[in-house]
Structures are given as C-alpha cells and as structure tokens.
C-alpha cells in the first residue's frame, strides 16, 4: 500500500551549505522519509530531495505532537569522538575522548549533555555510546 510520510511546515528560511542539502522557505510543506538522530532529516519533495535541518521544521498535524523523548536526568554515558567548541551560550565545549552523560536526546540533533557541573547542548553526531550507566 501507499507509504504515508510525515509532513512538516518550514518555520524559517534555510540556505543549503552542501550538495546534498536543499534550500527551505518559511511556510513550505515538506515530507520526511528519514529522520536521522543527528538532526539532519531527508526530505522528499515534488521536484527536489535532500537533507534539511529538523530544527527548521514543525509538525503539520499538531505542533504539540510529542516525538521527542523525555529528559533522562540520570543520563546515558557517551564518549565524544570529535571536539566541538561552543558557539552559543547554551552549548558546551568538549575535547575528543571525553565521557559525558546525555540528559536529553533532542530531535534537532543538539543533545543536552552533562559533564561534571557543566550542562549544555552538543552535536549528537560527535558522540558514540559508551555503554549503559550502572545504577
């Protein structure tokens, strides 16, 4: 039978930054065929297809739709495999090989992580699982 794809509305203009991305215009409707947890979603349009940032989309059917999991305050252990330097105030800077706790896996790919006393957003694509935290 037909595959029903989730439709989203574009909430801000987006200009592509690499070959396999596509431009978005506020108010456009897009159908998503793959939701990568790194925050890049694959859009299948009538005339174009490519990766777009989930952070620029809202669900067409009810913005209250809860696709996102709840925060996990105990945290799940991950290790950074790439360094990232914070560019915004709510982000956290980490070096390669740091073990951190993931508190909230946000759909936009910018997970909330904790290291010691510090908490902030970090790109999920630079993390890999370190195994479950023991209680």
């Amino acid at each position: 039978g037909p595959i029903l794809l989730d439709t989203y509305r574009v909430i801000a203009d987006f200009t592509k930054t690499s070959k396999h991305e596509i431009d978005l215009h506020t108010g456009d409707l897009v159908e998503i065929v793959e939701k990568n947890q790194n925050g890049w979603w694959f859009c299948q349009g009538e005339s174009k297809r490519g990766w777009i940032p989930a952070s620029y989309l809202e669900p067409l059917d009810g913005p209250e739709e809860a696709e996102e999991g709840e925060p996990d305050y105990e945290g799940e252990m991950f290790v950074t495999h790439k360094a990232y330097k914070a560019e915004q105030r709510d982000e956290i800077s980490l070096e390669v090989g740091e073990t951190i706790s993931v508190i909230h896996k946000l759909l936009d790919g910018w997970w909330v992580v904790r290291k010691g006393e510090q908490t902030g957003h970090f790109p999920s694509m630079f993390l890999h699982r370190a195994g479950r935290q023991e209680v």
């Binding site: 909430i11 930054t17 793959e34 890049w40 989930a54 952070s55 989309l57 936009d108 910018w110």
Partner: peptide, 22 residues
C-alpha cells in the same frame, strides 16, 4: 536508501522559532 547525511552539525534552531520547533 538515501545518501549519508551531511558530516557537519545541523544549524541550531533560529532563536525566534525555538518554541515552535520539533
């Protein structure tokens, strides 16, 4: 079935739209 996603982190949500984002 689709090409690999970009290797750079996606942009953060535009500040004025954060409340509406997915």
């Amino acid at each position: 079935t689709v090409k690999n996603p970009p290797q750079n982190p996606p942009p953060r949500p535009p500040p004025e739209t954060r409340r509406k984002r997915v």
